[in-house]
Amino acid sequence: MKLQVLENHNIRFSILYILAALLFSGNSAQAKPVLAGHVEAELISEISSIVPGEPFWVALKLRMDNDWHINWLNPGDFGLAPTIAWQLPEGFKAGEIEWPIPERLIFSPFVGFGYEGEKILPVKISPPKSVLPGTEIRIEAAADWVVCGEVCIPGGAKLSLELNVIKSSSLPDTNWAQLFENFRNEAAQVDSSYRVSSKLTEKALIISVAENSSNNMQIDSLIFFPEFNGLIKNAASQKLSKDEFGYVLEIERDPLGVTPPERLEGILVLRKYNDSKIIKTNLKFDVLLNKN
């Protein structure tokens, strides 16, 4: 008798559940942020439902308390870049973290490269063609970081995200799509309208930047972020000067420096005048490092 009642309840619950699922299906991508130490972490997705075989973007969204930061892939003088270990459904593949443009974080006499405030670290996920529409998939990520201010504290969070699989035409998740869009607008790009070259002298790294279309570029500021750690003195001021082709950035080498790399890879954050306005360009580059 008792059993029957329960069964009836179960049926009612099932109907309610289906109704609720239908009503709130748009919310299936919601996952709760996790607070750990001085960081609030969350796993977010750009789209609300995924399509078999179509890559999509998720991101580790981090919000740091005031005066705390996490690091770029090259942390600079101290700290450590965050890592993500993925646990994905069968056949799914995760790409590498796409790093936003870092900032120079000054803790005299040291300089770190990293992020304050709120940032997303996007990663491309490629689902297999065989994933079935109508099902739900679960993405799990174990994020580990070291958050630094005056001191450094290790932290981490186990995060997850559930997404519906649909046949075609995935829609953006209106909660987060703008963050991904902003990320793309800011991300460093290879830009063939600039020429970048680099050379290493005994004391300094010298980077030359010129615009292909003109000898008249007017730069307001230029900041270099090296992917390779140990070549330059991270805290050294980056001295900008003009030459006949464009601009030259001279940065003191690390006095205890390691063997220099073959190529120089990094980002140049360039602010130049366009009429009276300042335009910001984030140049990604990978050039031969000339040595003499």
Binding site: P75, D77, F78, G79, L80, F107, P109, F110, G112, C148, E150, V151, C152, N229, G230, L256, G257, V258, T259
Partner: peptide, 12 residues
């Protein structure tokens, strides 16, 4: 003979 150290900053 030379590598990049990792860790906390020395608290000078």
């Amino acid at each position: 003979s030379s590598t990049v150290s990792y860790g906390c900053s020395v608290k000078y």
